[in-house]
Design a protein around this nucleic acid. Structure first.
Lengths: 336, 336
DNA sequence: CTGAAAGCGCTTACAG
DNA sequence: CTGAAAGCGCTTACAG
C-alpha cells in the first residue's frame, strides 16, 4: 500500500540508489541526468511517496527529533516555553516530543529512558525536585542536554535559568519604594534552589532598606494541597501581623490562590497593599492591575535552549564523543 | 559505544535470535534454558542495554506512538486535554507526540505529514477551521484518526465533541431563571460549527422564554486581535442596549478579556449581571464566583479519544485495511 | 551517468 | 534448546 523507494525504483527500472539521491536533492551533485531526475520526481508524486523517517533515522543515526520534559503541560509558564521551543526547533528543522513529568521523579526518569530508546538527538528538561539518576546518566554519556528553570549546581550541564535572586530583589525593592514595609513572602518548595534564590532576593531588598526579615511574614506552602495551604499561610500571617502591607508571591499559582482568599475574606487587595509576583498570567491584568510582575523571558528561554542543544548535537556529530564545555545562562526578567 | 543486541550475542556467544527472544520475554515460550536466559539478562544489565525502538518499529511496523495536534498548547482547555491524553496513552503503553497547529492550516497539514512520515500509529487532532486536505487523505487511507472539539459533518471520521448546543441552552436558561432578560452573547469564529451550535443553544433558550433574539446583543469578535475587538463589541452592546443584564461568553478567552473591559470601565460585573461561560479557568473563581460555567469533560475527552484511536489501530492491525465504522461521541458538560 | 552491496538494529518465520 | 537468514526502508561508500 505505502510506496517505498523500492517501488519507485522498480516502476522506473532504476536503482534505489539513484532514486534516493534524486529525492534527497543530491541529483545534480551526483551528476544524474535531468531526464532521470524528472522521471523520479514525477513518479514519486504520482505514487504519493512519503519517505519513512524511521528508516532514515536508523540508517543515519539522526532522528531529527528533540525531547522536552516539563513538570506540567497545563502550567502557563511551561506551556509557553514549550511553544517557544517547538517553534524554534521547527525553524531549525527539528521536531519535538513533549512529555510531562508531573513532578514525579520516576516519571521523569522513565521519560528520559523512553526518549533515549526513541533515539532523540537531544533532551531539554525542566527537572523535578531531586531528579538525578537518568540526568546523571545523560551527563555521563555526553548526551546533548539542556536544563531550564532548575538546575543542579554540582552537575556539569548546560542550563538556562532566570535571575531569581535579582528579579525578586527588584520586585521587593519596588514595593518598598512604593511605601510598603511589612511585606510577606508566600512561597513553596523551599528545597528548590529556584525558590531559595527568590527568598534571598526578597531578604536582600528588605535588609538593604533596613527592614527586618520577619519570620512571621514568611508563608511557606507545601505543593500538595497548596490551595488549602495558601489559605492557612495567609490566615497565619494576618493573625500575627494584622498590618501586613505587601505580598510577594514566588509563583503565579500561589498568587491566584491568594486572590481567591482575599476575595473570600472580603479584603480589597488592590487598595492599601503592594503586590508582586514572579511570572504573570492574563487574569492578573484584571485581578491586580497594579501588581509588580517579573515577566519571564519565555522566548529567550526557548530560543537559547534550542540553540545550545543543537550546538551540542552538532558538536557531538563532528567530534564523536568529545565533550563540549557547558554553557550556562542566567536571563533577566523584564520588570515594571 | 551504545550496546546492541549483537554486542550481547557476541559476548555471550549466542545468536541474536536467542538474545532477542529472551529480552522480549519470549524466553519460556521459545523454550530457552533458564541458564541462558539468566546469562542474557545479566549481560544486558551489565552492558546497560537499551533497545533501539526505531529499529524495532521499522521491523514491526508499529511505532507505539500516537500523534496529537492541537491549535494552541498554551490554551488551558487544549493543554488539559493533552495531559489527559498523555496519561491515558501511557497507561496503554503508547507514547505521545504533541504539536501545535497554531490554528494555521498549513502547519496542521505539515504536522500530519510529519506524523505519517514518523510512522505514528494514529493521530488525534482538534482541527483548525477549514483544515481538510491532509485529514481527507488520512480518511481515504484509513489511517487511525480521532477528531475532537471540532469535526466535519461531511466526513466519515471518529470524533468527540461536547454538547455545544445543549450546554449553551442550559447556561442561558439558568441566566434567565435568575432574572436576566437582556442577555448578550460574545462569540468568535462563527464559521466554526462549534460556535454556531453555541449560538443556537443561546437562541433556543431565549425563544423558549419568549425573549427576543436581539441582534443588538450579538457581539462577534474576530480571533485575530480579539483583545481589541472584545472591547469594541462590548462598547457597541452597551451603546445600543444600556440595560443589558447578562453576558454569555462562548469561550473562556473572550470572558477573560471582557473582565478586563469591565474592570477598566469601572463596571462591577458581579452585581446586577448574570454571567455564563463555556469552560472555566481558575481565575474565574475570583473574578466572577457566581458565573455559570459549563465545565468541559476533559478526562472523558482524553480517555475516549485514546480508546477509540487504539481500537482503530488494533482493528486495522487485525483486518489489514478493513475500515471500521466510525464512532462519534457528544459528551455533556457538567453544569452548575 | 548509474548500480550492486552492505549496513543501521531489530524481529521472526524456518530449520535443525 | 539454539541459530542462520531474510527483511523492515532507508543511505552511502565503492565500483564501473
Amino acid at each position: 500500500m505505502k510506496t517505498s523507494l523500492k517501488d519507485i525504483a522498480e516502476t522506473l527500472k532504476l536503482s534505489k540508489t539513484t532514486v534516493s539521491w534524486v529525492l534527497s536533492g543530491k541529483g545534480d551533485e551526483k551528476g544524474i541526468s535531468l531526464a532521470t531526475q524528472e522521471k523520479v520526481f514525477q513518479c514519486a508524486k504520482q505514487l504519493n511517496y512519503q519517505p519513512n523517517l524511521l528508516a532514515r533515522s536508523l540508517n543515519t543515526g539522526i532522528s531529527g527529533t528533540i525531547g522536552l520534559i516539563i513538570p506540567d503541560i497545563t502550567d502557563s509558564f511551561y506551556s509557553k516555553v514549550a511553544r517557544s521551543i517547538e517553534m524554534e526547533a521547527e525553524a531549525q528543522g527539528y521536531s519535538l516530543m513533549i512529555c510531562s513529568s508531573e513532578s514525579e521523579i520516576e516519571r521523569e526518569n522513565r521519560m528520559i529512558r523512553l526518549f533515549k530508546a526513541k533515539q532523540v538527538d537531544g533532551i531539554i528538561v525542566a527537572p523535578t525536585k531531586v531528579s538525578k539518576i537518568e540526568i546523571q546518566n545523560l551527563v555521563k554519556e555526553g548526551y546533548p542536554l539542556v536544563l531550564f528553570d532548575r538546575y543542579f549546581p554540582e552537575m556539569q550541564t548546560n542550563y538556562i535559568i532566570i535571575d531569581n535572586e535579582g528579579s525578586s530583589y527588584e520586585l521587593v525593592k519596588r514595593m518598598i519604594d512604593n511605601g510598603a514595609s511589612k511585606i510577606a513572602i508566600i512561597t513553596t518548595n523551599p528545597h528548590l534552589r529556584t525558590m531559595n534564590m527568590r527568598r534571598e532576593g526578597y531578604a536582600r531588598a528588605l535588609i538593604e532598606a533596613n527592614l527586618p526579615v520577619d519570620p512571621d511574614l514568611y508563608g511557606e506552602v507545601t505543593f500538595v494541597d497548596y490551595e488549602e495551604n495558601v489559605f492557612k499561610a495567609l490566615d497565619q500571617i494576618f493573625g500575627k501581623v494584622p498590618d501586613v502591607d505587601g505580598f510577594f508571591f514566588t509563583t503565579h499559582i500561589l498568587a491566584l490562590e491568594a486572590f481567591r482568599y482575599f476575595y473570600e475574606k472580603g479584603i480589597n487587595i488592590n487598595n492599601g497593599y503592594e503586590l508582586a509576583c514572579i511570572h504573570g498570567v492574563s487574569a492578573f491584568r484584571v485581578l491586580a492591575p497594579n501588581m509588580n510582575i517579573a515577566r519571564m523571558p519565555i522566548e529567550e528561554i526557548g530560543k537559547n535552549a534550542v540553540r545550545i542543544l543543537l550546538g551540542d548535537i552538532k558538536y557531538r556529530l563532528e567530534n564523536s564523543n568529545g565533550k563540549k564545555e557547558v554553557e550556562t545562562l542566567v536571563l533577566p526578567c523584564s520588570l515594571p
